[in-house]
């Protein structure tokens, strides 16, 4: 399946020396060396972001547009900072979902923005595939900042960077992804990325929150939290996405927390040095207990946010500067 990187996949190969595609629409379809390349670059930006002077000039004169059809604070801010720290001009456009119900408006919006010659569009949309559609219509690079229940590639990259910096590797790690996998784009991107990098992934959720065919992604499926967490290195919690749910998937928040909420009790099953992650925003007391979330020894949650800026800088740099190469112009 080529869906992650199409449309407009570049003809050149991944050789680990650059990111070979025009867009970043998903993790599915990327190679290990593509991911390594982005993570290595991002690692450098972490240091840059910790200096007093955080600004570089890589993207000077370039325009980035954050086009968000769905509410977001952290992802949008993260992309905005990333763009600005690289010296680019960043415009934020939030289009409320209610006024954009019709798809032609999506394409119209895309065409309008395209006419302003941006160098990159960062897009979030509530429908799976919407970012794909948009990427087919514009001339600039498109970065998927989350589309429906499909993918959220920069989240998976920042998660991988956070893990890699703490554990020194991704390969061979046991990662448990817990919670609402069915509605989660974060889960899909993470499953793809971790599998590509050689980690072993299990998903832990009640059957109603697991999408059909998930076992075909090469993951181990668990319905019992303690068995699912047994011996794992990373516990990745997902947000219960009540806003995407139509109808009842779990009986109550109380029951959900009882069986699937992460607390110290359930965490005991994991390795003693297991790390806890959450893509945010957290529903404290729903999928994660505050005590666990704020445990500075084990929680990677704040680090994830920090890595987010670095990863997005790496992605923007890879996609936007690549356009200066003359052979890339017409793709």
């Amino acid at each position: 399946m080529t869906s992650a990187i199409a449309p407009g996949a570049a003809p050149d190969r991944s050789d680990g020396s650059r990111y070979p595609y025009r867009h970043l629409l998903g993790i599915e379809g990327l190679s290990r060396s593509d991911i390594d390349f982005l993570l290595d670059r991002a690692d450098g930006f972490v240091d840059q972001n910790r200096q007093a002077d955080k600004k570089s000039t890589t993207l000077r004169g370039r325009t980035l547009i954050n086009l968000f059809f769905e509410n977001s604070t952290r992802t949008r801010t993260s992309f905005e900072l990333a763009g600005k720290r690289l010296g680019g001009d960043v415009i934020n456009m939030s289009v409320s979902t209610s006024s954009i119900k019709k798809g032609e408006t999506l394409i119209d919006t895309a065409m309008t923005l395209n006419a302003m010659h941006p160098d990159a569009l960062v897009v979030r949309h509530s429908e799976s595939g919407a970012v794909h559609l948009l990427a087919e219509k514009v001339n600039c690079s498109v970065i998927n900042a989350g589309d429906g229940s499909h993918e959220h590639p920069t989240q998976a990259l920042l998660d991988a960077l956070a893990i890699r910096r703490r554990k020194g590797r991704l390969e061979g790690l046991e990662v448990a992804i817990c919670g609402d996998v069915s509605h989660s784009r974060v889960a899909r991107s993470n499953i793809h990325l971790l599998s590509i990098m050689g980690a072993r992934v299990r998903v832990v959720a009640p059957p109603t929150l697991l999408p059909s065919g998930i076992e075909r992604f090469g993951v181990e499926v668990h319905h019992d939290m303690e068995r699912g967490l047994a011996g794992c290195d990373i516990v990745m919690m997902l947000r219960l996405q009540t806003e995407r749910m139509k109808g009842s998937y779990v009986p109550s928040i109380r029951e959900y927390f009882r069986y699937y909420g992460l607390d110290h009790e359930k965490l005991r099953a994991a390795k003693p040095d297991a790390l806890i992650m959450h893509p945010g925003p957290m529903n404290r007391g729903v999928e994660i207990d505050s005590v666990v979330a704020d445990d500075i020894d084990r929680s990677l949650i704040r680090e994830q946010v920090e890595m987010g800026v670095a990863v997005r800088m790496a992605v923007l740099e890879a996609l936007v500067t690549r356009q200066t190469e003359p052979w890339a112009k017409n793709q």
Partner: peptide, 21 residues
């Protein structure tokens, strides 16, 4: 079939689309 738009299974799940069994 209410929310679905694709055949339920691996393909729909990969694409993040709601399935119809």
């Amino acid at each position: 079939a209410r929310e679905g738009c694709a055949n339920e299974g691996e393909t729909a799940t990969r694409l993040g689309l709601a399935g119809i069994p």
